[in-house]
């Protein structure tokens, strides 16, 4: 048909799996927000004895990639342990879907974030998390692996787009290797802010473009 999506993406987009809400979930999370664009909600039920995800559902306010990724990761996570589910990556989901266009990485990674956050919510509610970790440059760098480079479909760390990161008294400054008027400069900036601003001890995020 000439669409940029694999047959499997189209199939999951047309007939999404595990859609809906779980009443009384053991963990739930929302990633993205209507203000920024796409948004997903993920709900999980966990068997306490085996730490296995027995049920998982998602809702999507997003594009085709977002809906398809939500479907595939819920199928991948169901029946697995919490620890196993945590290690599902965007790449795993993309491979399972027969590939995703690079420019769509941004929309689909939200579903993975949703799953991980729902698991974290479960762990927090059940007293399974350690102390909150202070945000350092290393922590920011790790988090930036969730920001996708729309030119390649790989994250901005792996594609060497981040020149430098500094963290000082709650102010995070990130230097991006792009010119300010680059086609994707604004989209990447918004994405970085969306990922870093909610971190618990971050007050302000400043994105600089350097080349």
């Amino acid at each position: 048909m000439g669409l940029p999506y694999s047959e499997k993406v189209i199939e999951y987009f047309k007939n999404p799996k595990n859609v809906g809400k779980i009443e009384d979930p053991d963990g739930k999370a929302q990633e993205g927000s209507p203000a920024c664009g796409d948004m997903v909600k993920v709900y999980i039920k966990v068997d306490q004895d085996t730490q296995t995800i027995t049920d998982i559902k998602f809702e999507s306010y997003g594009c085709a990639s977002n809906i398809a990724t939500g479907s595939i990761i819920t199928e991948m996570a169901k029946g697995r342990t919490v620890e196993e589910a945590k290690s599902i990556t965007w790449q795993d989901a993309a491979d399972e879907l027969g590939g995703l266009p690079p420019i769509k990485a941004h929309c689909s990674v939200l579903a993975i974030d949703g799953l991980r956050s729902a698991i974290r919510d479960y762990e927090e509610r059940h007293g399974l998390v350690k102390e909150k970790e202070p945000t350092t440059a290393e922590v920011v760098e790790k988090r930036l692996k969730r920001v996708m480079n729309p030119m390649t479909g790989l994250d901005v760390i792996r594609t060497d787009l981040i020149h430098d990161i500094s963290v000082e008294e709650g102010v995070v400054e990130i230097y991006v290797d792009l010119t300010e008027d680059h086609q994707f400069a604004n989209a990447i900036k918004e994405d970085i802010k969306e990922k870093i601003e909610p971190m618990w001890d971050v007050e302000k995020v400043v994105v600089h473009f350097v080349e």
């Binding site: 189209i10 664009g37 086609q183 994707f184 989209a187």
Partner: peptide, 20 residues
């Protein structure tokens, strides 16, 4: 499109620069 209709949108996901 799958129903044969061509229309466009102002959504960021549709734009070449990923901006609304």
């Amino acid at each position: 499109d799958m129903r044969g209709v061509s229309v466009s949108t102002g959504s960021a996901c549709f734009s070449r620069s990923l901006e609304a």
